[in-house]
Design a protein around this nucleic acid. Structure first.
Length: 236
DNA sequence: GATATTTGACCTAG
DNA sequence: CTAGGTCAAATATC
């Protein structure tokens, strides 16, 4: 119906390339420091920078591809009440549910590929510093393993809309793809270390993202913006 | 008893 | 119509 977001990533391409080049340089430094066993402080600093720049690139691409507007439009067209925090007990009568409101995904989307520890019996493979609650699982066509759907535990208490999808890769059951949607707006506990890191992002995610830059054949199908794959191709 | 997970049904986009 | 994503009741665990 609409042709607004036909070519994504074409708008801020130059800026994104600049940012990605910056990331590339930072990762190179990080590699050097990791190999030399340098201080964790420096590595942490580098990963923080990488994440920051990645975020910026995502913002550029999102803005230029009109994803934001598309998402908002979908919601406006489909439902009249976008407020999620309104229980109102819509199932007041009978076993049949009345009109169930459905939220459309957030605008942001990150995919990381991580290896599940110890052969993973299927539990949460990535502890990224946030507490997640599983709310669904689906068999995905063409995939051998089901996909798990998680949302932030603080969704109702703090209105945090971050979600993630966890799915084992078809070829390597030891690897899982984790797709993050949205940002954490919840306030985590002080984390005892006093690193002063922002509540949303986490260095672990960054290291996972950096580690994900190995596979040569991405084979991305339905993902609109796979930032990590783009970054990976930069490193190749 | 409170919280998390499981699971089938429901809803929407393509 | 199909596949993917979410909801919410039922169930399990702490």
């Amino acid at each position: 119906m609409e042709s607004a977001d036909g070519s994504n990533g074409a708008g801020g391409g130059g800026l994104v390339v600049t940012e990605l080049s910056h990331i590339k340089e930072l990762v190179r430094q990080l590699e050097v420091h990791l190999g030399g066993g340098s201080s964790h402080e420096l590595c942490r600093h580098l990963t923080t920078q990488i994440f920051s720049i990645t975020e910026r690139s995502i913002g550029i691409m999102t803005a230029s591809s009109g994803l934001d507007a598309a998402g908002a439009r979908k919601r406006a067209a489909g439902l009249a009440s976008p407020l999620p925090a309104t229980p109102t007990s819509d199932v007041a009568d009978g076993p049949f549910r009345s009109t169930k409101k459905r939220k459309v995904m957030e605008k942001r989307k990150h995919q990381v590929r991580v290896s599940s520890p110890g052969g993973g019996a299927g539990e949460n493979p990535v502890d990224d510093g946030h507490s997640w609650r599983k709310y669904g699982q689906k068999e995905i066509l063409g995939a051998k393993h089901p996909r798990g759907y998680y949302r932030c535990t603080h969704r109702h208490s703090q209105g945090c809309l971050a979600t993630k999808q966890v799915q084992r890769t078809d070829e390597d059951p030891a690897l899982v793809d984790v797709i993050y949607h949205g940002d954490h707006t919840c306030v985590q506990r002080p984390a005892a270390a006093g690193q002063g890191q922002p509540p949303e992002h986490n260095p672990d995610v960054v290291s996972a993202l950096v580690a994900a830059s190995a596979p040569p054949a991405p084979a991305v199908d339905g993902l609109d913006e796979l930032l990590d794959i783009d970054i990976a191709s930069f490193f190749a």
